[in-house]
Amino acid sequence: MQDFPIDPRLERDSVAIADLGLCQLRLSRDARWPWLLAIPQRANMTEIFELAPLDQTMLTFEVNEAAKALSTVTGADKINVAAIGNIVRQLHIHIVARFEGDANWPGPIWGHGTPEPRSDEDIEALARKITEAMARS
Rank of each mutant, 00 (worst) to 15 (best):
residue 54 L to P: 12
residue 27 L to H: 07
residue 85 G to E: 13
residue 84 I to L: 12
residue 33 W to G: 08
residue 33 W to S: 06
residue 72 T to C: 06
residue 51 L to V: 08
residue 50 E to L: 07
residue 21 G to C: 07
residue 46 T to P: 02
residue 90 Q to V: 12
residue 16 A to Y: 02
residue 64 N to P: 09
residue 28 S to L: 00
residue 42 R to I: 13
residue 42 R to T: 14
residue 86 N to T: 04
residue 39 I to H: 12
residue 61 F to N: 15
residue 28 S to C: 00
residue 18 A to F: 08
residue 91 L to S: 11
residue 24 Q to T: 15
residue 89 R to H: 15
residue 47 E to R: 10
residue 55 D to Q: 12
residue 89 R to W: 14
residue 80 N to P: 01
residue 47 E to L: 08
residue 46 T to L: 03
residue 72 T to Q: 13
residue 102 D to S: 02
residue 102 D to E: 03
residue 106 P to K: 02
residue 24 Q to S: 14
residue 93 I to H: 03
residue 49 F to S: 07
residue 93 I to P: 01
residue 37 L to F: 15
residue 20 L to D: 01
residue 32 R to H: 00
residue 36 L to W: 08
residue 22 L to H: 05
residue 105 W to I: 11
residue 38 A to F: 05
residue 63 V to I: 11
residue 54 L to K: 14
residue 20 L to N: 01
residue 105 W to H: 14
residue 16 A to F: 01
residue 64 N to L: 12
residue 48 I to R: 13
residue 21 G to S: 09
residue 47 E to Q: 11
residue 41 Q to E: 13
residue 33 W to N: 11
residue 102 D to N: 02
residue 74 T to K: 06
residue 91 L to D: 11
residue 38 A to W: 05
residue 103 A to P: 01
residue 80 N to A: 03
residue 104 N to P: 12
residue 57 T to G: 10
residue 71 S to G: 15
residue 30 D to F: 02
residue 22 L to E: 05
residue 40 P to H: 14
residue 86 N to Q: 04
residue 51 L to E: 12
residue 105 W to C: 14
residue 60 T to G: 14
residue 30 D to N: 07
residue 51 L to M: 12
residue 47 E to W: 04
residue 93 I to E: 02
residue 70 L to I: 09
residue 34 P to R: 06
residue 33 W to T: 05
residue 86 N to V: 03
residue 87 I to K: 13
residue 96 V to F: 02
residue 30 D to P: 03
residue 30 D to L: 00
